[in-house]
Each structure stands twice: as C-alpha cells, then as structure tokens.
Amino acid sequence: MSGEPMKEMKIRVKGGGARGILLWAGIAAATVILVLAVLKGVLGISLAFFKTTLSLKPTTLQLEDIQDLEFLVTAEYFGEVIGTARDYFTRRTLPRAEGLCVRLIRTSDPASEKFSAEEQEILNVIRAALIQRSGPSPAVMGRINDWKRVADMLRLEMRNDRFSPAFAELLLKQLLAKRDIAYLARGSVQAGYDLKNLSADAYFYCPSTRTLFLGSRVQVFGRQINPWFIYDPASEVFVKGFEIISQNNIDLEDEGVFDFLKAIKDECQSRLGDDAVREGIETQARESAERTLENMLKMLKSDVQTVRILSVEEFERQKSVCPDSGRAVLSGR
C-alpha cells in the first residue's frame, strides 16, 4: 500500500517533464524568432532567413531616334532640392479644388454639374474636410451627398474665391492622409545657345570697336534628375538622384499612384530649374558663351576682339549705332 502513491507520483513527474520540455522548446523557438526579428528589424543585420534581393533581368537598349544638334552649352548648374506632396497639393490641388468649389457655389443647380473622375476625387476630399470641420455633426453627415447643401457649406469656407486658411489646412491634411511622400532630388540644368536658330541677320561685326554682336536668347537645354546623380564605380562615388525622405500610404497597386509620384518628381525638377535661374544661369551662360566665342575667334586669327551677345532689342539698337556694321568678320583675317 505504501508503494502506490510513490508510483503515481513518478508517472505524474514523467508526464510533467514531457510537457515541460515541449514548453521550454516553444519558449526557446519564440525567443530565437524574436531575437532574429530584432536583429533584422531594429539593428538591420542581414540574415539569410530574412533576405530580400532585388535583381534586374538583362534587357537591351533599342535605338529609337538620332537627332542632329548644334547646341552650345555654356553654363551648368548642379543642385539639390526637396519636393513634397504637401507643396504639390498646395500649388496644384488646392487651386483646382477652389475652382471646383467656385463652380459649385455659382451654379444654380449644383446637382446637375458633371465632374471628371479626378474632380470627383477632389470633391470627395472636400466633403471629408467639411465633415471634419463640422464636428463631425450627424446633420452634416446625413446631407453631405446633397450638392446644394455642400455648396452652402462651402460658401462659409470661402472668401474672394479662396479657401479660408483653416479650411485649406484641413483639406491639405485630408489629402496628405490619403497619400504622402517627400523626395530629396539632385540634378543638373544646362543652358546655352542653339546655333541652329542663329540666322544670317542675327549677327554683325563692328570694325571700329572690333566687336562681334550676336542677337540671341539663352535657352535652357536640359534639366535632369536621373535615378543616379553620380554613378562612378572607378572613383567609388555613388550619389542617388532621387531619395525618399518619408512616405505614407503609397501603394503601387493604387490607381493613379504613378502619376502622383511623377507629379512630385516634376515639382523637384521645376524647383531645380527655378534655383538655377535664381543662381544666375542665364547671365553665366551669356558671359561664358561670349568668352568661348572670343577664344575660338582668336585661335582662328580673326580680327574680332570682343563678342557681345544681346537681346533682340539691344541688338537692333547696337546695329543702328555702329555705322559700318557688316559681316566682314568672317573674311576679316
């Protein structure tokens, strides 16, 4: 009798041991997974179990077009800009939204107005902003599909066909909640003169001052922001053209997402162009072109001492000032 309880006890211990081993194995596995996840996610340590590889399949380059150029690039600007969805919405979407709201307010029958899919999308954001502005009040939510009511509410949010600052900010928040991205972009701008546009009467030589005058306008030849700004394996310099600073709700499967991304990149490109102009690329291009032509003419032993590139109006004025103007420069060696 005294041995019975002992036997039961042993069996219980054995059973408890198997469960215990399983439990400990489970805890150990969970810990390993947790540690690996931390190493990968928090510390960014690359592990074979979590490896992600991007690769490109080999494809060829197909020649589409060859174009003959006669362009003299005389100034280059290298710059870095930031393009954000917020700026894009402020500069492009808000004015469009204001235009749509003015249309809605001014029409006698807002319900009969026809809107494109894109306009409809903007109107949906406006309605969401109106709901948020109202509280959201059940009375507003119940009648938000009534265009007449929407027009009435918009009247309160607009002054001189512009949104009130508070409503504009609310609308921006709604738009950014749907989709947001900010890019840091690096690129270049080139400016100079298209020699193809230089007609025979666009230049003259003034022998008394030994100056060659040209009447031509500086042109921006190109504004590039490429995937790589610098890709130079030889000197091991790799600088990205576009870098994502932050992003939210960008799903490449969403409709219109690529157009949206292009629009933000467009913002970057137009800012780069603006920066180049602000830095004086046009003046630099003109001065540099004058120097380049002077050097070339000197090397060709021409009589020309100075080259001046002028605007069309200034060019005509100089032509009338110089009495013996002509194109003798070209045979004046």
Partner: peptide, 25 residues
C-alpha cells in the same frame, strides 16, 4: 547648388528605349 561655366558643343542626341524588368526575392 553651384553654377559652373561650360563651353560644350552638343552635336548629336540619341534616344533609346529600355525595358526595366526586375524581380524581388
């Protein structure tokens, strides 16, 4: 953010098509 003078004569422009086919493993 710098401006540089240049004197480059561009005489030809090529346009190429490229298919970008990538895979993510």
């Amino acid at each position: 953010n710098r401006l540089k003078q240049a004197s480059k004569l561009a005489t030809v422009k090529f346009t190429y098509n490229k298919i970008v086919w990538g895979e993510k493993e």
